[in-house]
């Protein structure tokens, strides 16, 4: 009756079933679920977009006046690299896994960022949130911050040459 030996194991073990969804899921504290982007912290810089292996995070620009950081959880591989590289610490890895949906659209989450124009040439420079972060973290004169890199270079060069010129006189 060697085939009955399994019965002893079964009786000894008893019930192991997790009665999800009536009982909590079998989650550990380390589980990586969907990420959450905090719209009050996000700068819209795109560091997460660059690192995201499956392109679940993307920057899209519909109007030209704003960019939207879009998180499409339907393509996410839940690696959490975006949270690691985010300079603003705006991305948090949650334990959310109940993401089922009847449409692809409801799997998308977007944070819209208004763009700032260069005060000199009018080209789009960066997002308002990025601008605020830069002003907060470094003592750059606002005059330079709202310039695109090229205008900034010319203006800086001009200012420097004036100063150099003044010194030689």
């Amino acid at each position: 009756m060697s085939i009955a030996r399994i019965l002893e194991i079964a009786f000894r073990t008893g019930r192991v079933t997790r009665k999800y969804p009536h009982e909590p899921p079998l989650l550990t504290p380390e589980f990586r679920g969907a990420v959450r982007v905090d719209p009050s912290k996000c700068w819209g810089c795109g560091a997460c977009v660059k690192i995201c292996p499956p392109n679940a995070l993307s920057l899209r620009s519909d109007s030209g006046r704003e960019v939207v950081l879009e998180y499409f959880v339907g393509r996410c591989i839940f690696c959490g690299m975006c949270a690691e590289v985010c300079p603003a610490r705006a991305i948090e890895v949650t334990k959310e896994f109940e993401l089922s949906s009847t449409s692809l659209e409801s799997l998308k989450y977007g944070v819209a960022h208004r763009l700032v124009r260069c005060s000199s040439c009018g080209s789009l420079v960066w997002t308002e949130a990025e601008l605020r972060a830069v002003i907060r973290s470094s003592p750059v004169a606002e005059e330079y911050v709202v310039l695109c890199p090229r205008c900034r270079k010319t203006r800086f060069a001009r200012a420097a040459s004036i100063r150099v010129g003044a010194g030689s006189e």
Binding site: W43, S101, G110
Partner: peptide, 16 residues
């Protein structure tokens, strides 16, 4: 049997 939890969201970034 259960309700859908996720929905499409698009928010505007705001200052903290």
């Amino acid at each position: 049997v259960v309700e859908q939890k996720v929905k499409k969201v698009e928010v505007v970034a705001s200052e903290s």
